[in-house]
Amino acid sequence: MSLARRHRDRILAAKTVASAPHGGVAAAPAAAPLPAAGAVNASPADRAAAQIALRYTHDLRRLKEIRSIDKKIEAKREILPEYRNWVAGILTADAGVGTSVAAEVLPTCMVWLIDTGAYAEALDLVPFMFKHRVDMPSRYQRDAATIVVEEIATAALKAQGAGASFPIAILDRVADLTSHLDIHDEVRAKLLKAIGVEQLQEAEDLPADVGMAALAAAVSTLNEAQRLHERVGVKDRIKRGLKLMAAITAAREKAIAEQNDGQGGPAA
């Protein structure tokens, strides 16, 4: 895509929002479709919205025809750059997304970014979505906060289950963005479990003299996950954290005892 095209897409997206009633994305009345992308009498903003809606409809159809999950993800990686400048324009205008078909583009891109592992980019869209109360397309059957927490937590737990780590900075950012929102306890427990697993792993790699505080934080996080959902599956990790803490405490006490013995015992 040329620099001129990227610039044009971004400006048209911003104009689409700016020209809409009440600051939303420009759209035809609810009973009427968007004008055709090449309609002679359509404004640049209307044409831009129609073009992005047409592209979006085509891409949804393409994805629906793909059966393999891996191939769907590959297709989403190919598709996403085509929306980057439209989304950037919407974010720049900072006035919501309106109600036309084009209004589904930003929340859908957020999900696709999560699906493709571009978690930081997905989270960059979240403050805007919360601020403007952007609805998810009905096919997702969940609100934006639930999707963000559950999908990223699920990805983290899957990686951890395979013996890999997951960026704790991403998990912490999800927690910070959603801590004030009302979501199901089971969903939040999954996020806390993922965070606790990473905290425990990091604590295990620390020297004993600094590891106690990190272990205590990990156990606290895992206990909160357990409190929210008793079947979240963290009991073994809590036991491991407590065992490691006990081992550090015992080692410290032994070292103190040996030091006292070497000095002839404590003063009378």
Rank of each mutant, 00 (worst) to 15 (best):
L3T: 11
A4T: 10
R6P: 06
R8W: 12
D9G: 04
A13V: 01
A14S: 13
T16H: 02
S19F: 09
S19P: 02
A20K: 07
A20D: 07
G24W: 00
A28L: 00
P33S: 03
A36M: 10
G38I: 05
G38N: 15
A39M: 07
A42S: 07
R47N: 02
A50T: 05
A53W: 03
T57I: 08
T57E: 13
D59K: 04
R61M: 12
L63R: 01
K64S: 11
I66E: 04
S68Y: 05
I73K: 04
L80V: 11
R84T: 15
N85M: 12
A88K: 15
G89Q: 03
I90G: 00
T92V: 04
A93M: 05
A95F: 01
G96M: 04
G98T: 05
T99M: 11
S100Q: 01
S100Y: 04
V101Y: 08
W112A: 08
W112G: 08
D115W: 05
A118S: 08
A120M: 11
E121H: 06
F128A: 08
F130G: 07
M136Y: 10
P137K: 06
S138G: 06
S138A: 10
A144E: 05
A145R: 12
V148I: 13
I152F: 01
A155N: 06
L157W: 06
L157F: 06
A159Y: 03
A164Q: 14
S165Y: 02
A169V: 13
D172V: 03
V174K: 07
V174T: 00
A175P: 03
D176M: 13
T178G: 04
S179C: 13
D182I: 04
I183N: 03
H184Q: 13
V187L: 05
R188D: 02
K190L: 10
L192C: 08
K193C: 06
I195R: 14
I195V: 15
G196C: 09
G196W: 10
L200P: 11
L200H: 13
Q201V: 13
E202P: 01
L206P: 04
P207Y: 09
A208M: 09
D209Y: 08
V210G: 05
M212A: 15
A213T: 13
L222Y: 01
L222A: 02
N223L: 12
E230I: 10
E230W: 04
V234Q: 07
R237W: 05
K239F: 12
L244V: 08
M245G: 15
A246P: 01
T249C: 00
T249N: 10
R252L: 12
K254F: 03
G262L: 12
G262K: 14
Q263S: 11
